[in-house]
């Protein structure tokens, strides 16, 4: 056996326990989501129902308004990511390219905002949103998610920006491009890996966030996916687990696909953002 084959087997053996634990909940979701409703609670429990009931997904989709929640989650995560990048890029550029008075303070300020989590500030945030008339508006989440991601994004982008040689911009500058042109045409395309990583992380934050959505959203047609699923479980007289599991399984798929597609990009982006 070649060294590589032996190494591969060893590695897979080492990773197996962790993978079992990671995949276990997915197996549970799948198992429960395709069981006939009447068998979900049967004792002793078993992995397989008497037949595969794909109708659960259909029932879930119509009963819960899943499609709407999916669209809401996508909208909030994508818009928050966009807003966050638009604000973070110039700030990160300034941090990477300039030395200016108060730079240290600004860095501290960012670190401190990073330490505050939505749940700690939820009451104040809610009052702010009420003041702006944004209660029960998806845009309130866009604002807050962007704000809570800002510090991390600036920091990520700044460390990557610092690795881009200044000569690249200089060359464009000397060739007669304006500063803004050199920034948008030369610099940002070079920073694309870091932008992608930052965007992914920010998107995941929005996709996963729970407490702010719980507090600011009111009507069920505005619910994000996470909130929708929680709504199927919390404080109910009875929980229909086959529906809940069908919903979680389906909610997981979009991000799982994004990961499978982008994971290499993600790691490379992080690698290049050599942290100082």
């Amino acid at each position: 056996m070649s060294t590589r084959a032996r190494k591969s087997i060893l590695y897979w053996l080492l990773l197996t326990p962790l993978m079992v634990v990671i995949l276990f909940p997915y197996a549970v979701m799948l198992s429960t989501a395709i069981k006939p409703a009447a068998e979900v609670m049967r004792f002793p429990p078993s992995w397989l129902g008497s037949r595969i009931e794909l109708g659960n997904f259909l029932e879930m989709w119509t009963k819960t308004g899943f499609g709407r929640a999916l669209a809401n989650s996508l909208y909030v995560s994508a818009m928050a990511t966009l807003l966050c990048l638009v604000v973070a890029i110039p700030a990160a550029y300034a941090m990477a390219r300039f030395r200016f008075a108060g730079q240290g303070w600004y860095r501290q300020f960012l670190l401190i905002t990073q330490m505050l989590s939505p749940i700690v500030l939820v009451i104040g945030i809610f009052r702010l949103m009420a003041l702006l008339g944004l209660v029960d508006q998806l845009n309130s989440l866009v604002l807050t998610y962007a704000a809570f991601n800002l510090a991390f994004s600036i920091w990520m982008l700044q460390s990557y920006f610092a690795t881009i040689p200044i000569e690249v911009e200089e060359a464009a500058y000397i060739d007669g491009a304006s500063w803004l042109q050199s920034l948008t045409r030369i610099f940002l395309p070079l920073a694309l890996p870091a932008l992608a990583v930052t965007a992914i992380l920010s998107f995941i934050f929005g996709w996963n966030e729970f407490v702010l959505a719980l507090t600011t959203l009111r009507s069920s047609e505005k619910y994000t996916l996470t909130l929708k699923v929680f709504d199927l479980v919390g404080g109910r007289y009875s929980v229909e687990w086959h529906i809940v599991m069908a919903a979680t399984l389906l909610a997981t798929l979009p991000v799982a696909v994004i990961f499978a597609w982008l994971q290499r990009y993600l790691i490379r982006g992080l690698a290049l953002a050599a942290v100082k």
């Binding site: 009420a130 719980l214 009111r218 404080g235 109910r236």
Partner: peptide
Amino acid sequence: IEVVNWDNLEQKLTTDIAGGT
């Protein structure tokens, strides 16, 4: 009509009243 589940109802009303909504 806004339907809220029991686990969240008290919190929602509290924040609503606090926020003047």
